[in-house]
Simulated scan of single mutants.
Amino acid sequence: MATTATATARSAPTVSEQVANGVKIVANLALLPGSSQIVEGKVGSGVVYGLAGFAARAVFGPIGWIATGLDSYSLSSSGKHLWEHLTMPRVDDQPAKPGKPE
């Protein structure tokens, strides 16, 4: 039985990308949520994440700060919010299957 790979091929991140991602996550969690957004030039988004981090910390404590920082990191490293990684993909997000058109 032969199986075919349906996942798209994605290359592994380089060492410099891994180091940059490590710095981003530390900055988002230890300094200010949204730090990685600001470094990438998305200042407006970074400021909003920073304010949201302070608000979440005031309401939920350190868990709110960490959750906001993780979402900011997720958005900067993959382009998706944290909850988008945890939910099932929509039908229109899946790649089209090769075959005969109907």
Rank of each mutant, 00 (worst) to 15 (best):
V59C: 04
L82F: 08
G44A: 06
R57T: 15
P62N: 11
K42C: 01
G69N: 00
I63T: 15
F60S: 09
F54Q: 08
S35V: 01
L51C: 04
S74Q: 07
V47L: 03
S76I: 12
L70A: 11
T68D: 05
L51T: 03
L32N: 08
E84R: 04
G50L: 02
Y49F: 14
G46W: 02
G64T: 04
Y73K: 05
S74W: 08
A30G: 12
V43G: 06
G61Q: 03
I66Y: 13
E84C: 10
A52K: 10
A58H: 12
L32V: 03
I38Q: 02
I63H: 07
L70H: 09
F54M: 15
G41L: 03
Y73V: 02
G61E: 07
V47T: 00
S72E: 01
G34V: 01
Q37K: 14
S74C: 01
L51A: 09
L51D: 05
W65Y: 06
Y73R: 10
G61N: 00
G79L: 01
H81K: 14
V43S: 14
T68S: 02
V47N: 01
F60H: 09
L75I: 15
S78I: 05
A56C: 06
V43K: 10
F60W: 06
I63C: 09
E40M: 11
I63N: 13
A55V: 14
G64S: 10
L32G: 02
I38D: 03
V48A: 14
P33C: 03
S35C: 04
A52E: 11
A55M: 10
Q37W: 14
Q37E: 14
A55W: 05
G69Y: 01
A55S: 09
I66K: 12
K42I: 07
V59T: 09
F60A: 11
A52G: 13
Y73L: 13
A52F: 09
R57F: 15
S74V: 11
G50K: 02
H81A: 15
G46V: 06
G53A: 04
L32M: 07
F60T: 05
W83G: 10
G53V: 02
G79F: 00
R57W: 15
S78R: 09
G64C: 02
S35R: 02
V47A: 03
G79C: 04
V43D: 06
G64Y: 03
G50S: 01
G61C: 00
G79T: 04
L29Y: 07
D71M: 05
L32E: 12
G64F: 06
Q37N: 14
G44W: 04
G41A: 03
I63P: 07
V47R: 01
